[in-house]
Nucleic acid binder design. Structure first.
Lengths: 306, 306
DNA sequence: CCGATTCATACATTTTCGACATCAATTATT
DNA sequence: AATAATTGATGTCGAAAATGTATGAATCGG
């Protein structure tokens, strides 16, 4: 079954003239002859009744045209739809973010994208902090806004949209509460929330498992799932938490305060997506996000830690 | 747009394994790889997310599959239906016959065909004596049962199903009525019904326009359209008519009698169809009709006048 | 009877296809 | 942690198929 044969057949059905059909198809006329003959052999009967002076459909040809025409149109439409889906921004883009990542940087990005791509339906939703990549891999979201600390082989680390200084969250009545800054070395005896495996096995641990000098940290046995659970635990003095400066937004009246970390570099907030699921919408979002900083960064290419 | 690419794509969608897909498609595995890559380039985006260990559809691939699958199935079905229509006897076969051709030979043929091809709906109807080929060419009938006296370029003269001796129909009180036989040479002064052009420009005139010795016949100015009109005119002595022996069936009580023609060869009754519209049903009918006499005879090949 | 139009065919060239060997990446095994 | 096995991608070469140009054959109008 050859698609060219069918295209020739369908055009010839309309033109009923080999010469005109060949012009419409941008094919030499002998080819129209041969392809028609070939299709007739494939079908097993004459499709056209033709002399050098007149071309008409046979009953068989008419039946075949009636059956084939809608199928062919549908096939062309399917290809066109796929091309559109691949190349146009029209469609839907689902952005997932972890609670801590919500902030002005994300809002700016979303607004800029919406303004530039009114034909794209944008869905922005929060994803669980402990399993954000699952949503990405299952295709429930298209892009994840998270700390760029992973190095997964199937993911692309996109542009950075924000950089956050590292802070320690402690209860207001914690011994460290009044300090101007804190070093990791001082934290070995305070329990941290257990870090999901994902954040441990990273190119850049969001929460290190030991201090720069190599001493292990202490981890609280209880699993916390959301940032609010963590804040609650910290407020009650059950644990301390390594977080980012922007968390202050959420701390009003919680009895939790932030202290700058002296020996932890800032973390980058950025876009992450499945390399295989990349599409025009994602590329455009990444381009907008990167602003003047260049295009998306594939895994492996070392992104600079500011 | 290449059909092989799509077949590979659809099979790969099911197998999600290049090796198994290549087996099912009877293609070498490298070709499956290349064709998939080619389709992806055509579409403009990745259709599969693949590592050496796992193959999965991307969202784009899934959409494309959902769109393409029904179109492809429909296309395959269209081709299958056409092949069936071309090669199977299932369907409808419309046989047209002229009134004079009705008789045992036609009945036998119809019964034999019906018995052998119960899946074929047979329609047998009478067609006008003056324009039988129009019905054939317009596709209102598939096969015509008529005297094999034509030589039209677009028609196939099929097998003979009956041979009829030539008779002259005259009124019972006609001067020739009592004769054992008549010669053409005796008929120059009796008016014949006007012969449709079709029957004049033949390889073998059903009604000659002159006697064997070259003397012209006389034709009645009035046009007769059916055999019954002719019988009526003959009965009233308005004309004589060159016909066949089997017409006697219709003459009971009409006051018309038949006299054998001495110097006119018998005519063959046979099948005629549009060469371009030939199909399995027609071929089978022709084979049954020809009995032991061989297959259908194409125009040009001189059929023996018995 | 002649010329114009139109569909079919012949042949040289280019392209594609199939088979094989091999590479690169990933995972299971030891 | 090192190794073997599996799997998809890539390179190459001879064979086969498709393609384009030129030409032939049939029909119709004048």
């Amino acid at each position: 079954m050859d698609i060219t044969e069918m295209e020739v057949f369908l055009v010839l059905c309309e033109e009923l003239h080999f010469g005109r059909a060949s012009e419409r198809l941008h094919l030499p006329q002998p080819r129209v002859s041969r392809l028609t003959a070939s299709l007739e052999q494939r079908v097993g009967g004459k499709l056209f009744e033709r002399s050098s002076r007149r071309v008409r459909l046979t009953p068989l040809g008419e039946q075949f045209r009636n059956d084939l025409r809608p199928a062919y149109d549908q096939m062309v439409a399917a290809l066109a739809a796929a091309r559109t889906a691949a190349e146009s921004t029209a469609g839907r883009l689902r952005i997932g973010f972890i609670a801590t990542a919500a902030g002005e940087a994300l809002n700016r990005l979303v607004r800029a994208f919406e303004a530039a791509n009114p034909d794209c339906e944008l869905v922005v939703r929060e994803v669980a902090i402990d399993v954000p990549l699952d949503d990405l891999r299952r295709g429930e979201i298209d892009v994840l806004v998270n700390w760029l600390t992973f190095d997964e082989p199937d993911l692309t680390l996109g542009p950075t949209i924000d950089v956050q200084k590292r802070m320690l969250a402690v209860a207001a009545d914690h011994p460290l509460a009044g300090r101007d800054s804190v070093s990791m070395e001082e934290l070995t005896d305070y329990p941290f929330p257990e870090v999901p495996r994902l954040y441990r096995a990273s190119r850049f641990p969001f929460t290190p498992s030991q201090t720069p000098s190599g001493r292990p940290l202490t981890f609280h046995p209880q699993v916390v799932r959301t940032v609010h659970e963590t804040i609650s635990m910290v407020a009650r003095g059950q644990m301390v938490h390594l977080t980012v400066a922007s968390l202050s937004r959420m701390l009003n009246g919680t009895g939790v305060v932030l202290i700058p970390m002296r020996d932890l570099p800032p973390v980058e907030l950025g876009l992450i997506w499945c390399t295989a699921h990349e599409n025009a919408r994602i590329r455009v979002l990444a381009r907008i996000a990167s602003g003047g900083y260049g295009g998306p960064v594939k895994r492996g290419s070392n992104q600079e830690d500011s």
